[in-house]
Amino acid sequence: MKSNRIDLLTGIGLCLISLAVFIYAFEFSGRGVNSYGPNFFPQAIACLLFLASAGLIYQALKGHTTASIESINKAGFIKASVTLALAIIYVFAMNFVGFFIATIAFLYAVMFYLGQRKQIVLTITALSVASVIYGIFSVFLKIPLPEGIL
């Protein structure tokens, strides 16, 4: 699959972003010590980004796009998305049930979802990995992990 269409859309999107950055950056001016104040660098980069994305659009329109893009495997993509969703739930759950319990549940759920069905493997891995991580971070490195409200 050629990436012309995706490159075209990305190029347009980046052009718009660089314009937005350029305009927004005017707010930072006025307080600099010299005439190259805090707005200068972002605006210079925004100009370059605009030019580069214009180049991308030009290439895409002329069909010159060199790299072909990787197609997305649908089943794999869904799997990755569900895992991401599980991770987000895990991060929120951690605040309620605490790091340890949430981690065991998260590991168990993800391994199960990815196709590991052996109960013994699931239980032992989830328990031992959670304990080791908890031990290293909380006890050894003294990083305060969320305890939850329970």
Binding site: T83, A87, Y90, V91, T103, F106, L107, V110, M111, L114, G115, Q116, V121, T125, V129, I133, F137, L141, I143, P144, L145
Partner: peptide
């Protein structure tokens, strides 16, 4: 199927632990 979740977990804990 076991390794990937563990790495995923390490990524989460690792990004948390810099500034809690």
């Amino acid at each position: 199927r076991i390794l990937t979740p563990v790495i995923f977990l390490l990524c989460i804990v690792g990004s948390y632990s810099m500034r809690f």
